[in-house]
Amino acid sequence: MTPTKSGDAILSLNGVTLRFSGLVAVSGVTMSIPRGSIVGLIGPNGAGKTTAFNVITGFYKPTSGYVEFSRAPSESVRLTGLPPHKVCKAGIARTFQNIRLFNNGTAMQNVMVGAHLRQRGTWWMNMFSYAFPAAAREEREIASGAYSLLERLGLEKYADSPASSLPYGAQRRLEIARALATKPSFLLLDEPAAGMNPQESAELLDFIRRLRDEFSLSILLIEHDMKVVMGVCEHIWVLDQGELIADGAPNEIKANPRVIEAYLGKEAVAHA
Protein backbone atom coordinates (compact mmCIF):
# COMPACT_ATOMS: atom_id res chain seq x y z
CA MET A 1 0.00 0.00 0.00
CA THR A 2 1.66 3.20 -1.17
CA PRO A 3 0.69 6.59 0.20
CA THR A 4 -1.09 8.82 -2.29
CA LYS A 5 1.05 11.13 -4.34
CA SER A 6 -0.72 14.34 -5.28
CA GLY A 7 -2.34 16.06 -2.32
CA ASP A 8 -5.08 14.08 -0.63
CA ALA A 9 -6.91 12.33 -3.44
CA ILE A 10 -9.61 9.77 -2.70
CA LEU A 11 -9.64 8.44 -6.25
CA SER A 12 -7.14 8.77 -9.04
CA LEU A 13 -7.16 7.61 -12.65
CA ASN A 14 -3.72 7.22 -14.18
CA GLY A 15 -3.58 7.19 -17.96
CA VAL A 16 -6.71 5.09 -18.24
CA THR A 17 -7.48 3.93 -21.77
CA LEU A 18 -10.31 1.65 -22.82
CA ARG A 19 -10.70 0.34 -26.33
CA PHE A 20 -13.81 -1.42 -27.66
CA SER A 21 -12.42 -3.35 -30.64
CA GLY A 22 -12.08 -0.35 -33.01
CA LEU A 23 -13.36 2.48 -30.89
CA VAL A 24 -11.32 4.21 -28.19
CA ALA A 25 -14.02 5.03 -25.63
CA VAL A 26 -11.67 6.43 -22.98
CA SER A 27 -8.24 7.63 -23.96
CA GLY A 28 -5.38 8.31 -21.56
CA VAL A 29 -7.52 9.87 -18.85
CA THR A 30 -5.67 11.06 -15.78
CA MET A 31 -7.57 12.72 -12.98
CA SER A 32 -7.36 12.93 -9.26
CA ILE A 33 -10.35 13.68 -7.08
CA PRO A 34 -9.83 15.49 -3.77
CA ARG A 35 -11.24 13.85 -0.67
CA GLY A 36 -14.56 15.28 0.49
CA SER A 37 -15.26 17.15 -2.74
CA ILE A 38 -18.17 17.14 -5.15
CA VAL A 39 -16.85 17.04 -8.68
CA GLY A 40 -18.33 16.61 -12.12
CA LEU A 41 -17.54 14.77 -15.32
CA ILE A 42 -19.19 16.31 -18.35
CA GLY A 43 -19.05 15.93 -22.10
CA PRO A 44 -21.26 15.49 -25.13
CA ASN A 45 -23.20 12.26 -25.80
CA GLY A 46 -20.95 9.31 -26.39
CA ALA A 47 -17.92 11.08 -24.89
CA GLY A 48 -17.11 8.08 -22.72
CA LYS A 49 -18.39 9.26 -19.33
CA THR A 50 -20.42 6.17 -18.44
CA THR A 51 -17.61 4.01 -19.75
CA ALA A 52 -15.22 5.78 -17.36
CA PHE A 53 -17.64 4.91 -14.50
CA ASN A 54 -17.68 1.31 -15.65
CA VAL A 55 -13.89 1.21 -15.59
CA ILE A 56 -13.78 2.64 -12.08
CA THR A 57 -16.40 0.19 -10.76
CA GLY A 58 -14.72 -2.86 -12.26
CA PHE A 59 -17.13 -3.71 -15.09
CA TYR A 60 -14.43 -3.03 -17.70
CA LYS A 61 -10.74 -3.65 -17.30
CA PRO A 62 -8.82 -0.77 -18.89
CA THR A 63 -6.65 -1.56 -21.91
CA SER A 64 -3.91 0.41 -20.17
CA GLY A 65 -3.58 2.59 -17.10
CA TYR A 66 -5.01 1.98 -13.65
CA VAL A 67 -7.33 3.34 -10.98
CA GLU A 68 -6.33 3.89 -7.38
CA PHE A 69 -8.63 4.40 -4.42
CA SER A 70 -7.81 5.66 -0.98
CA ARG A 71 -10.60 5.11 1.51
CA ALA A 72 -8.66 6.71 4.35
CA PRO A 73 -5.82 9.24 4.03
CA SER A 74 -3.02 6.79 4.79
CA GLU A 75 -4.13 3.85 2.67
CA SER A 76 -4.53 3.19 -1.00
CA VAL A 77 -5.63 0.23 -3.09
CA ARG A 78 -5.41 -0.41 -6.79
CA LEU A 79 -8.94 -1.02 -8.06
CA THR A 80 -7.99 -2.12 -11.54
CA GLY A 81 -8.41 -5.87 -11.79
CA LEU A 82 -10.92 -6.13 -8.96
CA PRO A 83 -14.41 -7.45 -9.83
CA PRO A 84 -17.34 -5.05 -9.24
CA HIS A 85 -18.39 -6.53 -5.91
CA LYS A 86 -14.90 -6.04 -4.49
CA VAL A 87 -14.78 -2.47 -5.74
CA CYS A 88 -18.00 -1.92 -3.82
CA LYS A 89 -16.52 -3.53 -0.75
CA ALA A 90 -13.51 -1.22 -1.03
CA GLY A 91 -15.95 1.66 -0.53
CA ILE A 92 -17.29 2.81 -3.90
CA ALA A 93 -20.99 2.86 -4.72
CA ARG A 94 -22.79 4.08 -7.80
CA THR A 95 -26.12 4.70 -9.49
CA PHE A 96 -27.00 4.04 -13.12
CA GLN A 97 -27.93 6.32 -15.99
CA ASN A 98 -30.96 4.10 -16.63
CA ILE A 99 -32.32 3.29 -13.18
CA ARG A 100 -31.60 -0.31 -12.22
CA LEU A 101 -33.62 -1.16 -9.14
CA PHE A 102 -34.60 -4.65 -8.07
CA ASN A 103 -38.11 -4.21 -9.38
CA ASN A 104 -39.77 -7.18 -7.70
CA GLY A 105 -38.51 -6.11 -4.29
CA THR A 106 -39.92 -3.45 -1.99
CA ALA A 107 -38.00 -0.24 -1.31
CA MET A 108 -36.91 -1.76 2.01
CA GLN A 109 -35.64 -4.92 0.35
CA ASN A 110 -33.68 -2.91 -2.20
CA VAL A 111 -31.87 -1.05 0.55
CA MET A 112 -31.29 -4.22 2.58
CA VAL A 113 -29.51 -5.81 -0.37
CA GLY A 114 -27.01 -2.95 -0.14
CA ALA A 115 -26.46 -3.76 3.54
CA HIS A 116 -25.69 -7.42 2.83
CA LEU A 117 -22.12 -6.56 1.84
CA ARG A 118 -21.09 -5.79 5.41
CA GLN A 119 -23.32 -8.39 7.05
CA ARG A 120 -21.41 -10.93 9.11
CA GLY A 121 -24.13 -13.50 9.77
CA THR A 122 -24.40 -16.06 6.97
CA TRP A 123 -27.40 -17.73 5.33
CA TRP A 124 -27.34 -20.81 7.53
CA MET A 125 -27.16 -18.70 10.68
CA ASN A 126 -30.31 -16.91 9.53
CA MET A 127 -32.00 -20.18 8.69
CA PHE A 128 -31.42 -21.43 12.24
CA SER A 129 -31.60 -18.07 13.94
CA TYR A 130 -32.81 -19.56 17.24
CA ALA A 131 -29.33 -20.95 17.61
CA PHE A 132 -27.59 -17.76 16.50
CA PRO A 133 -29.12 -14.83 18.38
CA ALA A 134 -26.32 -12.50 17.27
CA ALA A 135 -27.13 -13.15 13.60
CA ALA A 136 -30.83 -12.65 14.29
CA ARG A 137 -30.08 -9.33 16.00
CA GLU A 138 -27.94 -8.28 13.05
CA GLU A 139 -30.84 -9.02 10.67
CA ARG A 140 -33.12 -6.81 12.75
CA GLU A 141 -30.49 -4.06 12.81
CA ILE A 142 -30.17 -4.23 9.03
CA ALA A 143 -33.94 -3.86 8.67
CA SER A 144 -34.11 -0.91 11.05
CA GLY A 145 -30.99 0.63 9.47
CA ALA A 146 -32.57 0.33 6.04
CA TYR A 147 -35.74 1.95 7.33
CA SER A 148 -33.91 4.88 8.87
CA LEU A 149 -31.96 5.35 5.64
CA LEU A 150 -35.29 5.55 3.82
CA GLU A 151 -36.44 8.10 6.39
CA ARG A 152 -33.35 10.25 5.93
CA LEU A 153 -33.98 10.31 2.19
CA GLY A 154 -37.70 10.96 2.62
CA LEU A 155 -38.74 7.60 1.23
CA GLU A 156 -40.23 5.96 4.32
CA LYS A 157 -43.77 6.07 2.99
CA TYR A 158 -42.68 3.76 0.17
CA ALA A 159 -40.97 1.25 2.49
CA ASP A 160 -43.32 -1.62 1.65
CA SER A 161 -44.13 -0.62 -1.93
CA PRO A 162 -42.61 -2.48 -4.86
CA ALA A 163 -39.69 -0.46 -6.20
CA SER A 164 -41.17 -0.32 -9.68
CA SER A 165 -44.32 1.41 -8.38
CA LEU A 166 -42.43 4.47 -7.04
CA PRO A 167 -42.58 7.82 -8.88
CA TYR A 168 -39.57 8.51 -11.06
CA GLY A 169 -37.83 10.96 -8.75
CA ALA A 170 -38.31 8.62 -5.78
CA GLN A 171 -36.81 5.75 -7.78
CA ARG A 172 -33.69 7.85 -8.36
CA ARG A 173 -33.46 8.61 -4.64
CA LEU A 174 -34.05 4.96 -3.78
CA GLU A 175 -31.14 4.01 -6.00
CA ILE A 176 -29.01 6.43 -3.98
CA ALA A 177 -30.35 5.03 -0.69
CA ARG A 178 -29.42 1.54 -1.81
CA ALA A 179 -25.94 2.72 -2.74
CA LEU A 180 -25.55 4.39 0.68
CA ALA A 181 -26.49 1.15 2.43
CA THR A 182 -23.17 -0.32 1.27
CA LYS A 183 -21.47 2.32 3.49
CA PRO A 184 -19.36 3.89 0.75
CA SER A 185 -16.88 6.73 1.06
CA PHE A 186 -17.09 7.53 -2.62
CA LEU A 187 -20.30 7.87 -4.61
CA LEU A 188 -20.64 7.93 -8.39
CA LEU A 189 -23.87 9.39 -9.76
CA ASP A 190 -24.63 8.87 -13.44
CA GLU A 191 -26.97 11.68 -14.53
CA PRO A 192 -28.93 12.04 -11.28
CA ALA A 193 -31.05 14.87 -12.75
CA ALA A 194 -32.07 13.00 -15.89
CA GLY A 195 -35.85 13.11 -16.31
CA MET A 196 -36.38 15.61 -13.49
CA ASN A 197 -38.33 18.83 -13.82
CA PRO A 198 -36.62 22.19 -13.04
CA GLN A 199 -37.92 22.28 -9.48
CA GLU A 200 -36.75 18.75 -8.75
CA SER A 201 -33.31 19.43 -10.15
CA ALA A 202 -33.08 22.61 -8.05
CA GLU A 203 -33.78 20.48 -4.97
CA LEU A 204 -31.19 18.01 -6.16
CA LEU A 205 -28.42 20.60 -5.59
CA ASP A 206 -29.12 20.75 -1.86
CA PHE A 207 -29.72 17.04 -1.71
CA ILE A 208 -26.30 16.23 -3.17
CA ARG A 209 -24.54 18.62 -0.78
CA ARG A 210 -26.47 17.16 2.14
CA LEU A 211 -25.42 13.66 1.10
CA ARG A 212 -21.77 14.67 1.04
CA ASP A 213 -21.95 16.27 4.49
CA GLU A 214 -24.20 13.79 6.30
CA PHE A 215 -22.57 10.64 4.97
CA SER A 216 -19.00 12.07 4.73
CA LEU A 217 -18.71 11.22 1.07
CA SER A 218 -16.79 12.35 -1.93
CA ILE A 219 -19.04 12.53 -4.98
CA LEU A 220 -18.33 12.33 -8.69
CA LEU A 221 -21.30 13.01 -10.92
CA ILE A 222 -22.01 12.86 -14.62
CA GLU A 223 -24.64 15.38 -15.63
CA HIS A 224 -26.00 17.09 -18.71
CA ASP A 225 -28.03 19.66 -16.75
CA MET A 226 -25.58 22.60 -16.63
CA LYS A 227 -27.44 24.34 -13.78
CA VAL A 228 -26.84 21.31 -11.60
CA VAL A 229 -23.21 20.84 -12.65
CA MET A 230 -22.25 24.48 -12.28
CA GLY A 231 -24.25 24.83 -9.07
CA VAL A 232 -22.85 21.95 -7.10
CA CYS A 233 -19.45 20.92 -8.49
CA GLU A 234 -16.24 22.30 -7.08
CA HIS A 235 -14.18 21.01 -9.95
CA ILE A 236 -15.14 19.77 -13.40
CA TRP A 237 -13.49 17.50 -15.94
CA VAL A 238 -14.56 17.66 -19.56
CA LEU A 239 -14.41 14.59 -21.76
CA ASP A 240 -14.75 14.66 -25.53
CA GLN A 241 -14.45 11.57 -27.70
CA GLY A 242 -12.72 9.76 -24.87
CA GLU A 243 -10.12 12.47 -24.19
CA LEU A 244 -9.96 14.97 -21.37
CA ILE A 245 -10.02 18.38 -23.02
CA ALA A 246 -10.21 20.57 -19.93
CA ASP A 247 -10.58 20.63 -16.19
CA GLY A 248 -11.03 23.38 -13.66
CA ALA A 249 -13.46 25.34 -11.52
CA PRO A 250 -16.97 25.89 -12.96
CA ASN A 251 -16.17 29.47 -14.01
CA GLU A 252 -13.04 28.43 -15.87
CA ILE A 253 -14.91 25.65 -17.64
CA LYS A 254 -17.67 28.05 -18.67
CA ALA A 255 -15.07 30.36 -20.20
CA ASN A 256 -12.88 27.71 -21.81
CA PRO A 257 -13.11 28.05 -25.62
CA ARG A 258 -12.34 24.38 -26.27
CA VAL A 259 -15.17 23.33 -24.02
CA ILE A 260 -17.56 25.80 -25.61
CA GLU A 261 -16.62 24.47 -29.00
CA ALA A 262 -16.80 20.77 -28.14
CA TYR A 263 -19.70 20.67 -25.80
CA LEU A 264 -21.54 23.74 -24.65
CA GLY A 265 -21.92 25.05 -28.19
CA LYS A 266 -24.39 27.79 -29.00
CA GLU A 267 -26.10 27.66 -25.64
CA ALA A 268 -22.97 28.87 -23.85
CA VAL A 269 -22.18 31.46 -26.46
CA ALA A 270 -25.64 32.92 -25.94
CA HIS A 271 -25.03 33.03 -22.17
CA ALA A 272 -21.76 34.89 -22.54
Binding site: H85, C88, A93, R94, R100, F102, N103, V113, A181, T182
Partner: peptide, 11 residues
Protein backbone atom coordinates in the same frame (compact mmCIF):
# COMPACT_ATOMS: atom_id res chain seq x y z
CA UNK B 1 -33.82 -9.43 -11.05
CA UNK B 2 -30.71 -7.50 -12.06
CA UNK B 3 -27.32 -9.14 -12.00
CA UNK B 4 -25.39 -5.96 -12.84
CA UNK B 5 -27.06 -3.94 -10.11
CA UNK B 6 -26.48 -6.77 -7.64
CA UNK B 7 -22.75 -6.84 -8.44
CA UNK B 8 -22.62 -3.09 -8.01
CA UNK B 9 -24.18 -3.51 -4.56
CA UNK B 10 -21.30 -5.76 -3.58
CA UNK B 11 -22.99 -9.10 -4.16
Amino acid sequence: DDEIAAKTMGV
